[in-house]
Write a protein that binds this DNA or RNA. Structure first.
Lengths: 162, 162
DNA sequence: GTTGAAATCGTATCTGC
DNA sequence: GCAGATACGATTTCAAC
């Protein structure tokens, strides 16, 4: 769980990650079949990927509507006073509606991605963000999500002999 | 795995989702301890959450740098010809560098989030996007990611008696 | 990396609450 | 709908190769 060294991943490692990307609850047995190694070997690989920080965790993909957060939006934020110390990400971290926070190049300083229950909730959240971080905001509402959370390491087109 | 009904989730369901958000590879035994129910009950709940489409899958969180994609960017896209049929999300789906695609309210039609190896790769990807979907693009580079993939259902502050 | 044996876990099923 | 219990196959784990 430390920092990721620039040590390259071989085909087995990427195969394990690709298989996990399809189903992170897959058993070692299933992963072993996918990559063509023994269970123990896969287990060792997986432990190593985790301890090297290549894989930092496992999360379920949850339907936003089912958990009552059907409204998603991008919020760009810019400091009101460019002279003030800027620790917006830290200040905003307690707001659990914020799913992601990146600093960006461009007019704004940060890009947030948020999920809320309703327009009313979005208004409240934007107010909280403005107040907590002393920023102005520019909000872009997501009308429809075609896809998201796509795997960083796509499955190989066709593993030979499978 | 069908569509999500507006049937509300109770505290146990959200507890299971919260526990899985911390570790989606957790065993039923571990989940049962977390939510204070029997294994059989948790198993039934989990199956139901999956079949109802509340939980649609499980994915590993992978360090982008470790898999050779340290550069992330937001790309807004707008149609060159507003008269043409617009199926950009479909046309762009084969581009695996695209992690997310939303239609948005605002000047642009869609917001993409992409990950690539280098500025050179980003340039190539933007070209592909323009050509494939007949769009113009506006790219905002992510300089730093403070957090992302935060859980939709945060863990309860302190489960009583645990 | 592999094999194999022991401990743990997932699953199915049943009884009773 | 849940707890508890049984039973069996699957899975994880780890020591030895």
């Amino acid at each position: 769980m430390v920092d990721a060294k620039p040590e390259p991943l071989d085909a087995v490692d990427t195969g394990i990650i690709a298989a996990l990307s399809l189903d992170a609850r897959a058993t070692l047995t299933q992963l072993a079949e996918q990559v063509g190694l023994s269970i123990s070997a896969v287990q060792a690989r997986l432990r190593r990927l985790e301890s090297r920080g290549v894989i930092t965790g496992y999360r379920p993909t949850v339907d936003p509507e089912a958990v009552g957060k059907p409204l998603a939006a991008f919020i760009e934020i810019s400091p009101l006073d460019p002279a003030q110390p800027d620790n917006a990400p830290e200040l905003l971290e307690p707001l659990s509606e914020i799913e992601a926070c990146h600093s960006i190049a461009g007019e704004a300083s940060y890009m947030l991605f948020v999920r809320v229950a309703s327009p009313r909730e979005l208004e409240r959240l934007i107010g909280q963000i403005r107040q907590a971080a002393s920023v102005r905001t520019r909000t872009t509402i997501a009308l429809q999500t075609f896809y998201e959370y796509r795997p960083l390491v796509p499955a190989a087109s066709t593993p030979p002999g499978l």
